[in-house]
Amino acid sequence: MNLGVAMFIGNKLGKFHDMEMDALRCSWGAPLRMRVGVDVNLPLKQAYKIRTTNGEEHIVTFTYVHLPNLCYLCGHLGHIAKYCELRFHDDFVDPVVRPIPE
């Protein structure tokens, strides 16, 4: 992946700062590691859909490192999914627990 694509994706998350790259200013293989400034008062994005110039759609998923207590239910910092307020809503459906077919 080249720097331009990484900047595009990083700026969709927040403000792109830099990425790990080789002398050709590219990153090979997965995962692509980049540093992005994000507003932690907003939910963190888990994925983003991109479309290539030839019309193909791809889903880019994000993994955050060095963050304290990230909730994967609501995307906010400060608590984990086990203690998320969403669990206490009457219409809550746990995305991990699959319903038993009848």
Rank of each mutant, 00 (worst) to 15 (best):
K15I: 01
P43A: 06
E57I: 02
F92V: 08
M21R: 11
M21V: 14
D22R: 12
R98Q: 13
G10P: 07
D90R: 15
M34R: 08
N2W: 01
F8A: 05
T61M: 10
Y72E: 00
L70K: 10
T52Y: 01
H58N: 05
R35T: 06
S27K: 04
V60T: 03
K82P: 00
P101V: 08
D90K: 15
F88L: 07
H79A: 12
P95I: 12
R87C: 02
G78V: 11
V93D: 01
N2V: 03
K45G: 04
T53C: 04
A47E: 15
N54E: 10
R51F: 07
H76P: 00
L3D: 05
T61V: 02
N11R: 10
F8L: 11
D94P: 08
E57C: 12
T61G: 05
H17T: 03
V65R: 12
T52N: 08
T61A: 06
L42M: 09
T53E: 12
D94G: 11
V40W: 03
P68G: 03
C26R: 14
N11G: 05
L70A: 12
E57Q: 15
K49N: 13
W28D: 00
R51S: 13
R25G: 08
V36Q: 04
P31R: 07
V60H: 03
M1P: 02
F88Q: 10
L42F: 05
L44Y: 09
F88M: 01
P99L: 06
L13F: 05
P43C: 02
E20N: 08
L3W: 03
N2E: 14
V40N: 05
M7C: 08
E56W: 06
N11I: 09
L77I: 14
I9S: 11
N69G: 08
E57N: 04
Y48Q: 14
E56T: 13
D18A: 04
V5G: 01
E102S: 10
E20H: 13
A47Y: 11
A30Y: 05
F8D: 11
W28Y: 01
A30E: 04
Y72D: 09
G78W: 14
G4N: 15
N54C: 06
K12N: 11
A47V: 09
R87S: 07
F62S: 12
P95L: 03
C26K: 08
E20M: 12
V96I: 09
D39R: 15
M21H: 06
M1T: 04
V60C: 03
M19G: 01
D18N: 12
V96S: 09
F92P: 01
A30V: 02
D94I: 09
P31E: 09
L32D: 06
D18F: 05
M34Y: 02
P31Y: 00
Y72P: 02
K49L: 12
H17C: 00
L73P: 00
P101F: 10
K45M: 14
G29T: 07
E102H: 12
M7G: 01
H79S: 11
M34T: 07
I50P: 06
Y64A: 13
A23V: 13
L44S: 04
L86V: 02
T63F: 03
N69R: 15
M7L: 03
R98C: 01
K15Q: 07
N11F: 12
G75F: 06
A81F: 05
